[in-house]
Design a protein around this nucleic acid. Structure first.
Lengths: 240, 240
DNA sequence: GTCTATAAACTGATAGAC
DNA sequence: GTCTATCAGTTTATAGAC
């Protein structure tokens, strides 16, 4: 019963060659980047520990030993994957926090943008979410925790302003709200992308913006001050 | 970098001997059950694949080989752990579905009871939630999926009645609501019990019923018809 | 029912040829 | 930059003594 080998259904490469983006135009991407993509896919689907370096190597058609020309350790691959993902979330929150609209509009924009970010590069963000415990156990990942904390603070500012402007519930538990909502978006996206085949999981039928609309409505109705219950849900502000 | 060994902080046995519950009164529990408890704890904390049979054996102070006297495979241990947990959830939903109160009261009771169930035996339910993909890949776990589907249907009935009674939003997306709420409770409980040390994770300060109150409020405000926005959140009905 | 001992395969990682 | 070959340690699981 040692059937640990799992063959990954090929993903038709994606990323058809973008016309000269700088560097070299050698018809295709960096091998290193291919490895990161394959590893992210594996880590997202099966977890970091359950993924073997040989599986990653197989996915990019090299031998496991050759991986170590590009990366010193398996953990270094993980580190590289999550670093950008975490930073993207922080940048997103900071940028939206500066938008010249009211707190509710900023919050709606934040929700939609987070769902977007997590959805367009799903593997990396799934890994960020699922390997939390590893980050906390190893000091090599301290900067990940720092960035997550900064992201939390940016969310906090927006919600606090919404409360003091009277848009949101006066006695809103901001801490529980943020952590609950973040997990909601994360899991919703993860599930939207990866769940398939379970009797009750037929979600893929929903287009992404319909899912976004559901979440925004669900969350806003929860945090709005009661006298605003019937008001229209604002559209997200266009960003980027 | 082969430091895969992880020593589990001992959990002071719990389950101080209950006066003769039937079977034998031989001062202590079944060895088999001890193994299941230890395995559930490992699977919940580190995942099924990341846990080794040796770690489980160490936890109950026997050698890895001896485990195979009690269980045929590692997967059989997993199966036994999740079976009861899944069944408990189904029973809970069915029982509450029959309560002679309105749909909102049943739904509130369901939320609180689910949080209770998931919290009093957290390891098993955490495993049920986290090893979903494994269940779907292996036909040995088909009955798990079946029970989950039945549980979903029980929830569905309650929400549908709430909509037709005018208690809940007329255009509520029941499917998205149920799946979102279930994940919310699962993750909330998991996080409540296992998260510790992250800069933004200081949740353990909240008593469980405060957490339950937050979730019930959060969820009910989302699904109620707007004209009922200000109404008091009903208390859960006492069960068992 | 537990132990000893071990099989057979797999693990992350390294050294050196090309 | 990839391959061949391999290390030392791990994995799940088995056989048989006590």
């Amino acid at each position: 019963m040692a059937g640990r080998q799992t063959t990954l259904r090929t993903r038709s490469a994606a990323r058809s060659d973008e016309a000269g983006k700088g560097k070299s135009a050698s018809a295709g991407v960096d091998r290193r980047e291919l490895i990161l993509t394959a590893a992210a896919r594996r880590f997202a689907e099966f977890g970091f520990e359950a993924t073997t370096v040989r599986q990653i190597a197989d996915d990019v058609d090299i031998l496991s030993g050759s991986l170590y020309h590009h990366f010193a350790t398996k953990e270094e691959i993980l580190e590289e994957i999550v670093r950008d993902a975490v930073q993207a979330q922080l940048d997103c929150a900071l940028r939206i926090g500066r938008l010249p609209v009211n707190a509710e509009q900023r919050f709606v924009t934040l929700l939609v943008e987070l769902l977007n970010i997590v959805t367009v590069e799903p593997d990396a963000h799934t890994v960020v979410f699922h390997e939390r415990r590893l980050f906390r156990r190893s000091p090599d990942f301290a900067h990940i925790l720092k960035a997550r904390k900064d992201t939390y603070d940016a969310w906090c500012t927006i919600l606090e302003e919404g409360v003091s402007e009277g848009l949101f519930l006066q006695d809103l538990d901001i801490y529980l709200t943020i952590t609950t909502v973040m997990r909601m978006i994360y899991n919703g996206a993860d599930w939207y992308l990866h769940e398939d085949g379970s009797p009750i999981d037929a979600l893929s039928d929903y287009p992404l913006d319909e899912l976004a609309q559901f979440y925004v409505g669900f969350i806003l109705r929860s945090i709005r001050s009661p006298e605003r219950a019937g008001e229209l849900i604002p559209e997200p502000v266009a960003v980027s």
